[in-house]
């Protein structure tokens, strides 16, 4: 969200105080980005779990037709049931909307989500890398300015 500021400033022209301010800002940005990074990873692994459940080869046993399952009515109360239709699932697509899909397109949906998040993670990784580099340069600048 921080706009890419392409302005370059020669670090030698900054005082130690200014440098430490820059460092502080970079630290904050980095912290924010890293937490986004973990969140993205968590989201991706959630989608991956969903994908695993609907994929053919290691389909969740609960998704087998005529298989006996327990349906939770409350946290502590269950009733026994059997699945009459194991070829369709209802997928949460966000903002309170759900779509009833067949297993195949549900898997495609989750694959897509995992892929999208993977791309975002990659982008973010590059940004984090760049920021870390910037931080290192600024830290070197601080050390240098303290020596001189």
């Amino acid at each position: 969200m921080a706009s890419g500021n392409s302005e370059t400033i020669n670090l030698d022209t900054l005082s130690a105080q200014q440098l430490s301010q820059v460092k502080k800002q970079l630290d904050e940005e980095l912290e924010h980005l890293t937490s986004s990074f973990t969140q993205l990873h968590a989201a991706q692994s959630k989608f991956r779990d969903c994908l695993r459940c609907v994929q053919d080869k290691n389909k969740s046993p609960a998704l087998r037709e005529n298989n006996s399952i327990l349906v939770p009515l409350t946290n502590s109360l269950y009733v026994r049931g059997t699945l009459s239709d194991a070829s369709h699932v209802v997928v949460d697509i966000g903002t309170g909307f759900y779509v009833e899909k067949d297993i195949k397109s549900a898997a495609a949906f989750y694959e897509n989500k995992v892929g999208e998040l993977g791309a975002s993670i990659k982008d973010l990784e590059a940004i984090v890398q760049g920021k870390t580099n910037n931080l290192r340069v600024v830290e070197e600048g601080i050390i240098n300015s303290m020596r001189s």
Binding site: V90, G94, V99, E100, K101, D102, F109
Partner: peptide, 21 residues
């Protein structure tokens, strides 16, 4: 999030029903 939902609606195939919570 809403743009994602919109995109998902566009991809909707026949026989896929939409439910609202």
């Amino acid at each position: 999030e809403n743009a994602n939902v919109q995109k998902e609606f566009e991809r909707l195939k026949d026989g896929e029903n939409i439910y609202k919570l």
